[in-house]
């Protein structure tokens, strides 16, 4: 079932790549310059790295039947903290550690609201989504804070043959995949997502598991926020990570994980994030105004979701079947 769900996002991605090659024949070319790998596909991966990272965290949250709307705000906070600290003369390493520990605290807060107080995830995280960006603005006093730290710049703009941002995201993805599938964590997360009460009575530590995924999602968001701000060596509390939570949720859903919780697919999430990022890039290369990308995004999302919907499969099946049953069923024949 999961495999068939990945079919349509794969088709979408392939179609987008073909379209790109048709428009720009050099699209798939890669070249190495100063030991760095360059090319359009590398750019797509690099621009998509923060989304992939956040989407990985989001996948686990969604699998527990939750959602985290605050990741964009958390990303903005992480960038703001790091840049304010560095701008105040602090070292990059301390700045990163400081930012990430704050993110862990924010994740603990979200997790507390959801798992201990039992507040609906969408509302619980809406609190931080609204207040968090306000907090980031407060921190930067509404200014864009620029920093000059070559070490800090490495996170988002550095290269290790491939851009470091890609390597970080992929490493996290692989680590999470191994951690959840090689241990029983994945199964327990899914069990909690499908039936929290039954899991609790079976002795599953639901509260801890739910709490953990929110902390992890916030941590992912924090790293992504650092990537975003490091890439431009600046913190923009207003715009950094704006709508990235929506992109991440879309990536998760396109990847075949249901918002109703349960079975999840990290490979699907990666695919979903790539579809979204490739789409954005494609629209740029075709030369459509940036804001109009949204229309295409909407269409692709709807198309993939409709094609994945079990209901569509049913309808198609019925259509195929109906000629036979008409001849057999007296009712239909009479009507």
């Amino acid at each position: 079932m999961m495999r068939s769900r990945l079919l349509w996002p794969l088709v979408a991605l392939a179609a987008l790549l073909v379209l790109n090659v048709a428009v720009t024949p050099s699209f798939l070319e890669l070249r190495i310059q100063d030991g760095h790998l360059f090319g359009s596909t590398v750019d797509i991966l690099r621009n998509g790295a923060p989304t992939v990272l956040i989407a990985v965290g989001m996948t686990l949250v969604v699998a527990t039947r939750g959602i985290d709307l605050s990741v964009g705000a958390v990303a903005a906070i992480a960038g703001s903290i790091a840049c304010t600290y560095i701008a105040g003369g602090g070292s990059a390493v301390t700045a990163v550690l400081l930012a990430l520990s704050v993110c862990v605290l924010l994740g603990l807060w979200n997790g507390f609201l959801v798992s201990v107080l039992g507040i609906q995830p969408i509302i619980a995280t809406l609190v931080l989504m609204t207040a968090g960006r306000g907090g980031a603005m407060l921190l930067t006093e509404g200014q864009i804070i620029t920093v000059k730290s070559s070490l800090y710049r490495e996170i988002g703009a550095g290269f290790l043959i491939l851009p470091i941002a890609i390597l970080i995201s992929l490493a996290v993805l692989v680590a999470v995949a191994l951690l959840t599938r090689r241990t029983a964590l994945g199964m327990l997360i899914e069990a909690v997502g499908v039936n929290p009460m039954a899991s609790r009575l079976a002795g599953v530590h639901s509260r801890t598991i739910i709490w953990t995924v929110y902390v992890f999602a916030a941590l992912c968001a924090g790293v992504a926020g650092l990537m975003i701000s490091s890439n431009v060596s600046a913190a923009d509390a207003n715009n950094a990570g704006l709508w990235i939570e929506m992109d991440a949720i879309l990536a998760v859903v396109i990847g075949g994980t249901s918002l109703a919780g349960g079975r999840y697919s990290l490979a699907g999430t990666l695919l979903g994030a790539l579809v979204i990022q490739t789409l954005t890039t494609t629209v740029y290369t075709i030369g459509v105004p940036a804001n109009v990308t949204l229309v295409f995004k909407a269409l692709v999302v709807i198309a993939v979701c409709l094609l994945q919907s079990p209901r569509t499969a049913q309808l198609l099946q019925k259509r195929r079947k109906s000629p036979r049953s008409t001849s057999r069923s007296p009712e239909v024949a009479a009507g």
Partner: peptide, 17 residues
């Protein structure tokens, strides 16, 4: 509501506890 984990397999349900 309190027993079955509907979307998982029989195996997962069996070893859950």
């Amino acid at each position: 509501a309190e027993g079955v984990v509907a979307d998982l397999t029989v195996r997962d349900n069996l070893v859950l506890a």
